[in-house]
Computed example of a mutant assay.
Amino acid sequence: MAVHSKKLWFILLYCAAIVRTDETVTSQQASESVSVRQEDINTNTVALFERLFQLKRSEQKDAVQRILAIKSVEKQNKLLKLVITKIMEVLLQSRVNLESSGYLPGSGFPITESLRDALSSMIENTAFMGDLVLYLPDATKAFLKDNEWNTIFKWSLSLCQEAVFLSNNTKKMLHLVAQELNLIEREPGYFNPYAAANQRKPVDLPEIPQKKKVKKKISKGPSLSGARLKSEL
């Protein structure tokens, strides 16, 4: 296998690990919440979720940079499709679990472990997909044109925006994603430098007309030529 292919395979495995729900962590969440009082469970689990979510976000941003570093557009799109496919699988399963449980958008962080897992997984993968939309807008939006993926992501994005326990920074990022996808009206100052239409192109400067050189008339002094010499004598 070529070195470049190995690199792509490594990035794919790295992204897949980020998308996957970590069952060890969620079990630890459950065990830590047992020792606290019932009325404190929601507060503690939200705080723990936020810490783990920030760690996951750091990994996701690193994964996006790895994808951006791929020079070949064809290979980048191929990897992007595999990553988005996995993200959508997780979002779809999370949607099934959340809707079957009767969870309502805007509700607090759930106490039930299985429901917490589904919600956490959905939020993490929505944020990851949001990064891809913002940093690779043209390539990513091509995969979201009038299909099931588009429907799933709109649903997860809407649910995350209604979550009362997400930080302001996360909500601002999701707000930018909604603008990029034209799900809401773009604000006057909105600008995505990663969009192909906004990439800086060299500007052809107008040619400056060059001034014509004016030959200066040099007044001649006494000449040594025979004709002039005779007239001056």
Rank of each mutant, 00 (worst) to 15 (best):
R95D: 02
V96K: 07
L98C: 00
L98A: 00
L98F: 00
L98H: 00
S100A: 15
S101A: 15
S101R: 02
Y103M: 00
Y103H: 04
G106C: 02
S107G: 02
E113I: 12
E113L: 15
R116M: 08
A118K: 01
L119Q: 02
S120H: 06
M122E: 00
M122R: 08
M122I: 11
N125R: 01
T126P: 02
T126W: 05
A127H: 03
M129Y: 09
G130S: 04
G130C: 02
D131M: 11
L132T: 04
V133R: 03
V133A: 01
L134S: 07
L136E: 05
P137V: 05
D138P: 00
A139T: 07
T140W: 07
T140K: 03
T140S: 04
K141T: 09
A142N: 11
L144Y: 11
L144K: 14
D146N: 15
D146C: 07
W149K: 14
W149V: 03
F153W: 13
F153I: 10
F153K: 09
K154C: 04
W155A: 02
W155L: 03
L157W: 07
L157Q: 07
S158I: 05
S158Q: 06
C160L: 10
Q161G: 10
Q161Y: 05
Q161D: 06
E162I: 06
A163Q: 04
A163L: 07
V164A: 14
F165E: 03
L166G: 01
L166N: 01
L166F: 03
S167R: 10
S167A: 14
N169S: 14
T170Q: 14
K171R: 12
K171S: 04
K172P: 02
K172S: 10
K172N: 14
M173K: 12
L174I: 04
L174W: 04
H175N: 02
V177K: 01
V177F: 01
Q179G: 07
E180A: 01
L181S: 13
L181M: 15
N182E: 14
L183N: 04
L183A: 05
I184Y: 00
E185Y: 09
E187Y: 10
E187Q: 12
E187H: 08
P188W: 09
P188D: 10
G189P: 00
Y190H: 12
Y190G: 05
N192R: 06
P193L: 02
Y194N: 13
Y194R: 14
Y194K: 13
A195K: 15
A195T: 07
A195W: 12
N198D: 09
N198F: 07
Q199M: 12
Q199D: 09
R200Q: 12
R200E: 13
R200Y: 07
K201Y: 00
V203M: 12
D204L: 13
D204S: 15
L205N: 11
L205F: 13
L205R: 15
P206C: 11
E207G: 14
I208V: 12
P209G: 01
P209C: 00
P209M: 01
P209N: 00
K211V: 01
K211D: 05
K211C: 03
K212S: 13
K212P: 09
K213G: 15
K213C: 10
K215A: 06
K216D: 09
I218M: 13
S219Y: 13
K220P: 01
G221R: 09
S223V: 06
S225Y: 06
S225W: 06
S225M: 11
G226E: 14
